[in-house]
Design a binder for these strands. Structure first.
Lengths: 164, 164
DNA sequence: TTTACTGCAAATTCTTTGCAACAAC
DNA sequence: GTTGTTGCAAAGAATTTGCAGTAAA
């Protein structure tokens, strides 16, 4: 689905629920869908603050994210501790995540075979799946390389004690 | 690994880090490992409050959970929004989770084939996995049945509008 | 004009922390 | 005795909420 169609869908969503299309909601929606990055409520709030346009308060960001979530336009994912992170789901194929502990980058991956096995496991238990979260936590290729380089240098120059 | 051995391992863990085995830590450890249920910090705190023994404050519960986490005796999992939930990992085979939205029950499942595909996906991207969280969210068999029965009764007796 | 929306600041929820008294080692 | 621990209450971080003014429809 392309941007234009998604926006229409959001407007329809608001109308069916007798909600109003305010300039704040519009800005939040546009900003959230103009990126392919994952973002937290705070990040989105910061973006909106830096860019020009009608003022949007933090409370409204949270409230609108709630709406987008209900409408299944976006999806939240828990990336370790702390704040929730969002990504748009409409117009974006389903996928799972790999979260890098060092740089925070979130890579997406997808494997039909895993999905099939998941379906099999839940069917066997009579469990009806509404959504699923599949997250691998570790170190991405770039950070692993970087760490390896640093280890080598440490060896070469003789470093101090290893600290965390 | 059986209980006795796990406790020894915990004591060893404390000793290597020059930490002390206090009655509070001991109680928290014993309580956490005496159940196969998943628990939150608050739940654990409540258990300790109801049962008799040396007083344990909420702060100490959090601090000790932190220690157990560092020592990989327990593992945390994000079950939807809000608080973190813990389970012991030592002496317990690896598994994934199905979380029921209706009753909150957490079922465990495991499939070697999924693990293998996960390993394949991460290897392909040069991603080094430290841990993973795989969670299916939905409705368990019991709750699905219950909901179905209620739907049938609603039809039979003619219910009002469906509300959330 | 009606009904919903927004910003603000205060409230909540979960978790962490500073500090003085206290208990392992 | 030392050094790490505890409880308490206050602090923090993320998110929610009550309310009076404001803006869509």
């Amino acid at each position: 689905m392309k941007h234009e169609a998604i926006r229409k869908s959001f407007e329809r969503f608001l109308r069916t629920r007798d909600l109003k299309l305010t300039s704040q909601r519009s800005r939040i929606f546009e900003r959230a869908f103009s990126t392919h990055e994952h973002f937290s409520a705070e990040t989105l709030y910061d973006w909106l603050r830096e860019e020009e346009g009608p003022k949007v308060s933090r409370a409204t960001v949270y409230r609108t994210l709630g709406l987008l979530l209900e409408g299944r336009f976006i999806q939240s994912l828990d990336v370790g501790r702390g704040e929730l992170v969002y990504e748009h789901v409409t117009g974006h194929a389903h996928h799972d995540h790999m979260v890098c502990l060092a740089c925070g980058k979130i890579e997406e991956f997808h494997d039909e075979r895993i999905e099939a096995l998941q379906a099999e496991a839940s069917a066997k238990r009579g469990f009806v799946v509404v959504s699923h979260a599949h997250r691998l936590v570790g170190y991405c290729r770039g950070c692993v390389r970087k760490a390896r380089r640093e280890d080598e240098e440490e060896q070469r120059f003789g470093g101090g004690a290893a600290t965390e």
